[in-house]
Each structure stands twice: as C-alpha cells, then as structure tokens.
Amino acid sequence: MSGAAITGLNIDFATKAGIHHAVRNVTLSAGPGRILGLVGESGSGKSTVALALMGLLAANARVTAGALQLGADRFDLAQPQATAALRGIRMAMIFQDPFASLNPVFSIRAHLNEVLSRRSPDVTGDARRQTAVDALAVVGIDRPEVRLTQYPHELSGGMRQRVAIAMALLARPDLLIADEPTTALDATVEAQVMKEICGLRDRIGCSILLITHSLGLVAEHCDDIAVMYAGELVEQGSVKAVAANPGHPYTRALLACEVTIDAARGADARQSRFRMIPGDLPDPFDPPSGCIYRTRCDIAIADCARIVPPPVEVGGDAAHRARCIRVGAR
C-alpha cells in the first residue's frame, strides 16, 4: 500500500471583492496505513484542501498549482478533472452530513451497488448482495439484510454515517478523506464511528485524511497532525511530538484553548476562566506581510513582518516541522 502526498497546493477563489488566495502553498503527506488529522478553525482552508483533492471545488475556485502523489502515480491538480478517474476507486470521501452524501430516493442497497459496480464489476448477483451485507455488518449495522432495503431517512444519523463508511470500505481506496465525519453526532456515537473508521484503515491499509476542528479527536485517533491557519499550513508532525512540544505559537494557543474533560476544576465554579486567542483572522484580501499569524502572536518580533517563515525542524525530529522563525525561542 502506498501513501498520499500533496505538494505546493494553491487555491484561489474569484469573488466580487477580488481574488482570494484561500489556500497557499500547502504541502502535507499521509503515510501508508496512517491517519493524518488536519485541524484548523473556520476559514483555515482545511475543507477546501479536501474538496480540491476530490475535484469537487465550487465553480469560482481554481487550483493554481499543486500535485497529488498517490503511490507511484502523480497527478497535477491544476489540470481540470485531474482526479476524476480516482473518485470512488482509489479515493473516497466521507462528509460531515451523511444525509447530503446519500441520495434520498435510492435504497441503501443501490448506494452500495453503485460502488461495487465501479470497483468490482465482475462480482454480480447473489455474490454482490452478500458483499454488501458483509460490509454493513463489518461497520456495526444490525440486521444488515433489512437495512439494504431501507432508505436513508429511515436510519439514524450514526447509522447513515456507517453506511457512508461501508461505501468507503467497498471502494477499498488508497486514500480516504473524512471531513468532520462525527461533528453532527453525539459523543457516544462519535466514539463508535471513529472506531469503524480506524477499523477500515486496519482492514484495507489505506491512508486517511481526517479533517476536524477537534484536537481531542486527533489526539485519540490520529498518528500524525497537520495544523492550518488562514489558508496556510503552520505545523506538521506526529501527534505525540506536536502535543508534547508544539513548535508554532498558534498550535500552542489552540491546545491551551481546548476545554478538556479532565481539566483541573476548582471547588468554586464561579472562579473558572477560559482561554481564548485575542484578535481576529487576517483580512483575506489584505493578509499581513511575513508570517500569517504574527498579528495575533504573543511572541512576534520585528523580523516576523519581513520573513515568510519556512518549515523549521522542532526538537530534533525530522518529521516534526513548524513554520515559525522563533522555534525554540519561547
């Protein structure tokens, strides 16, 4: 099995107010059989990266540069329909709202059949039906034979997301993109769905790009983490290394803002105070010079306005890099 790597991805949006460089020079990779958590807040561009890979960007968006390396093959993402032939075969995606990714007028069986007819056209009839039943059972759906005949509206949110995972399982992709797959789900269901996504990776050995705003989810389930801010990648490394020793001030601030379930709690709840990052996201049409984060950074110096920070190794770990000229200067 191969991994997936994105290099030099740039995406522009044409808007009434002008050209918006929504994603700037993003390079990241998910090793074979590894789960990469791509985190960032609203407007960071993390979902735009995913949609660009799948070729599902809005009509006013354009990939101006960027390549996807999938195993031995390289795809120029700036070409129209660069990855169209990969969709549902070598690349699959799970969306935040499973209702939107399932067609309300088709049965669950029709959804699974569509994937199978694309991926395994030789398997037909009873064998195909059995494959579909097995896939539903694997992702923890009870009474799979009955479910095949049901329609999306007859299933709960967690159940629908499992159907989407079963479809991904049948596609046996090299790269699975999961965009906020559990955001619409309750905590108990979230844990189950994440278990199925990890199980999928164990079963078919694919790389997974998990897009989320939840650092807790990344800490629990991912091998690696990439952090985006305002359209740029600011840090990447193993989850262990980044959580223990964040190199970028933004990553450090995000970790500090996260309200954890085991945070220290005083006897008087009135005294509890919460962390935040002061300031606003930069104006997309007038980004600051130098470092994109410097206007909100607590350790910025004059050089930060002059130098666009290159990736710098953190803590002697070649796989852990942060784009900050003050790495180690804390």
């Binding site: 905590a187 108990t188 979230e190 844990a191 939840s214 650092l215 807790g216 989810l217 990344v218 800490a219 629990e220 989850v239 262990k240 959580a243 223990a244 970790l255 996260e258 954890t260 379930i261 085991d262």
Partner: peptide, 14 residues
C-alpha cells in the same frame, strides 16, 4: 459514566 468515557481526551496523545 458511558457519556464521560466516550469524550475524547487530549492526554491520550502524550
């Protein structure tokens, strides 16, 4: 107990 146990924990990483 079940609800609390399924809440993702940051500490898992370190």
């Amino acid at each position: 107990q079940r609800l609390l146990a399924s809440w993702p924990r940051l500490r898992a990483a370190t």
